[in-house]
């Protein structure tokens, strides 16, 4: 560094730009990390006093904020997500199987389907909410029920499931299918016994991510009638319900201090659920990398 030559070499053309650029990189990194860190820290700190078993064991209460819990929201979330998965998984995976394995990839129809699925994945969730309100709640008269919510959310996650499943299927080598067909298996047997099992880890990852997206969704459910105050656990498809995001949203509208810490505690709960799903997804993804 002390020799003039070395000094001249570090100050080659573009040296300043390079330094500025490096600092900008670190700044961007800092912005991302700090945002996430403050978010997690403030939420956990605000919800800490209410993070106890009562949160799960108690029903929401308007008159006794200090005793209120989120039990109905938890069971409601499980119901809604379960039913969503029940509708969306078979449809989505089968649709992906058709598009990837059976449809002719060059036909115009196929390209139309491709484009429309891409676009469906990007439709804002509130539009699905309006649609759910008009079709499921009103036209099919399902009312403000778990069934309506599950169908709406199923529409919302269907394109995501189809896209990720197709990618997983595409990663299965051609040779496996050809080998199976050459041994005399029918198309159905090939798909069921060879292609699907080989693509399963990829499919599972995509499905888990789609489900976690549905679990955190609030806007469409607001429109199709999830109510903030439900003091019972859902007992069937036509039962009224509330979910964690809706419960959080509702509690923050109440100005009493107990409710804001309660909301923070529920957020921590929701985040733990979603993080668990995401960690599972990335664990499956990293474990199943390239066996062939």
């Amino acid at each position: 560094m002390s020799s003039p030559l070395a000094g001249r070499r570090t100050r080659r053309p573009g040296w300043i730009a390079d330094q500025v650029f490096r600092w900008a990189l670190l700044l961007a990194l800092g912005i991302g990390v700090i945002t996430l860190a403050t978010l997690l820290c403030t939420v956990v700190a605000a919800g800490w006093p209410r993070l106890n078993p009562d949160l799960i064991a108690h029903m929401p209460s308007i008159r006794f904020p200090e005793r209120a819990g989120a039990q109905s929201a938890i069971t409601g979330t499980l119901w809604v997500i379960g039913c969503t998965a029940l509708v969306a998984l078979p449809t989505g995976i089968l649709a992906a199987l058709y598009l990837e394995e059976f449809a002719r990839p060059t036909s115009r129809f196929q390209r139309l389907v491709d484009v429309s699925i891409q676009n469906l994945a990007a439709v804002p969730s509130i539009v699905y909410g309006i649609l759910g309100l008009a079709v499921f709640v009103r036209a099919l008269a399902l009312g403000q029920s778990i069934a309506a919510a599950a169908l709406t959310l199923a529409l919302l996650v269907l394109p995501i499931i189809i896209i990720t499943t197709r990618e997983a299927l595409r990663a299965v080598p051609r040779g496996i299918r050809e080998g199976s067909l050459a041994l005399g298996a029918t198309e159905w047997q090939t798909a069921y016994r060879q292609t699907l099992p080989a693509a399963l880890p990829g499919i599972a990852t995509g499905v888990i991510l789609a489900i976690s997206r549905a679990a955190g969704e609030a806007a469409p459910l607001l429109l199709i009638g999830a109510v903030g105050f439900i003091a019972f656990n859902p007992d069937g498809l036509l039962s009224g319900y509330t979910t964690l995001p809706i419960q959080v949203y509702d509690w923050t509208k109440d100005s009493r201090a107990e409710f804001s810490s309660l909301a923070a505690a529920a957020i921590v709960l929701l985040l733990i659920l979603l993080l668990a799903l995401n960690v599972t997804a990335s664990w499956i993804r990293s474990r199943a990398r390239r066996r062939w």
């Binding site: 939420v43 609030a218 806007a219 995001p245 923050t252 979603l274 995401n278």
Partner: peptide, 24 residues
Amino acid sequence: ALTNLVDLMAAIPSVILGLWAFYV
């Protein structure tokens, strides 16, 4: 680590981000 962190950021529901934005 950063890849996971970014995935984690994407997983945060908008209702939580909204609340955080409102209070913090």
